[in-house]
Simulated assay, not measured.
Amino acid sequence: MTRLTQPIAVVDAFTSQAFRGNPAGVCLLDGPAPSEWMQLVAREMAHAETAFVWPLADHESGFFSLKWFTPTTEVDLCGHATLAAAHWLWQSGMLPIGQPARFATLSGPLGATLDGDWIELDFPAEPAQAVPAPPELADMLGAKPVWVGRNRLDYLVELTDAAQVRALTPDLSRFGPLGFRGIIVTAAGDEGYDLVSRGFFPNVGIPEDPVTGSAHCALAPYWAAKLGKTELSAYQASARGGELRLRLDGVRVKLRGQAVTTLEGRIWGP
């Protein structure tokens, strides 16, 4: 009995260098697959997210369904795996180079366009609203917040400066009771960037995410208001590191990044 296989790749997102940025699995499917199988594949891939993509109509229309899974759960929004999916759709020949990709997702319609070596994602802005800091937050982070906010996904915490963000060693074992996906920590940028950040999401199986596109849907409106500019350069200061260019466009955020494919293969299908 012949078993079906599906194309799968690993793409490093928000970087121009292999083995930096944020690696994502990307699995191209002919059609919908059981969620249980996609979750098992994401666990096997063991990256922060694995994207599953299949055409909703003739693939030449550029319209695809897109789902994201961490090793433990399905998530509503993921920037780096969307960028990785668009990159591999073009690289694999599923879409002609330069034709826009359109995705139907749990966070509504998303788009990706290619501009030279850069991919631009069209995402919803996710502004955070100021909230009282949870009493345990400073101890959990090991740093005193300057400002604390929250959106539907995460807490957003500003610290004093970029050096504090880079040196942070939070107690991840205490994040669970917060009840949200995680915490985005940020400060005004250094080394020529407008802002720096790090993202911690142990509640969905990601202790520290190397580069988090969806976090910048909160960071862009926050820093645009603080700095009085709608175009921003951002660096996520994880061990792997990643670079983004941001543009706030009303209720949308344009996320720009680069990507590199590091592995291609096939996986047993559902």
Rank of each mutant, 00 (worst) to 15 (best):
G265I: 07
T70D: 06
V131W: 08
N203F: 10
A81P: 02
P127L: 07
P202V: 10
P207H: 12
S65F: 10
P134R: 04
L263G: 02
D58R: 10
G31K: 05
R198T: 07
T50A: 05
G111W: 01
F180C: 15
S92D: 03
G111Y: 02
A51F: 00
F103Y: 08
A167S: 14
P55W: 08
D122C: 03
Q91G: 01
A215K: 06
E264V: 15
M94V: 15
L106H: 11
A101L: 04
W68P: 03
G265N: 04
W147H: 15
Q236C: 01
A143P: 09
M140W: 06
A24N: 05
L246I: 08
T15I: 04
C27V: 15
A9G: 07
G265A: 03
G205Y: 12
R152G: 09
F14R: 04
I8S: 04
L114P: 03
V157T: 11
G257T: 06
W268I: 15
Q17P: 00
S197M: 10
L244F: 02
F103Q: 02
T160D: 14
G108I: 10
R266F: 10
L159G: 05
S65M: 08
K254W: 11
E126D: 11
V165I: 08
P23N: 00
I184L: 15
Q164R: 11
S173V: 14
D12M: 00
A81H: 01
G21I: 09
G250C: 07
G265S: 04
E49H: 00
L156A: 08
G93M: 05
G213V: 06
L246H: 02
V165N: 05
G111S: 11
W268N: 14
K67H: 14
H47G: 01
E126V: 10
F69M: 07
H87I: 03
A259E: 06
P7E: 07
D76P: 05
A81E: 09
N22M: 06
E60T: 15
A224H: 01
A224F: 05
V148C: 07
P221R: 10
A143S: 08
T113K: 11
D115L: 12
T105E: 04
A215S: 14
L232R: 04
A81V: 07
S197C: 01
A163F: 00
R102N: 12
R245M: 13
M140Q: 09
P207Q: 13
T186A: 15
A259N: 02
C27S: 08
M45F: 12
A133Q: 09
L121K: 01
A162P: 05
A48L: 12
P34Y: 03
R240N: 05
K67M: 11
F69Q: 07
N151V: 09
A143Y: 01
G199I: 09
P135L: 14
D76M: 14
A162L: 07
D194A: 04
N203L: 13
P7R: 12
R266C: 12
Q258V: 08
I119E: 08
Q39E: 12
Y193A: 13
L77Q: 10
F103M: 08
P127W: 09
L153K: 11
G257P: 02
E158W: 05
L219P: 00
P32F: 02
E44G: 11
R152S: 13
S92I: 07
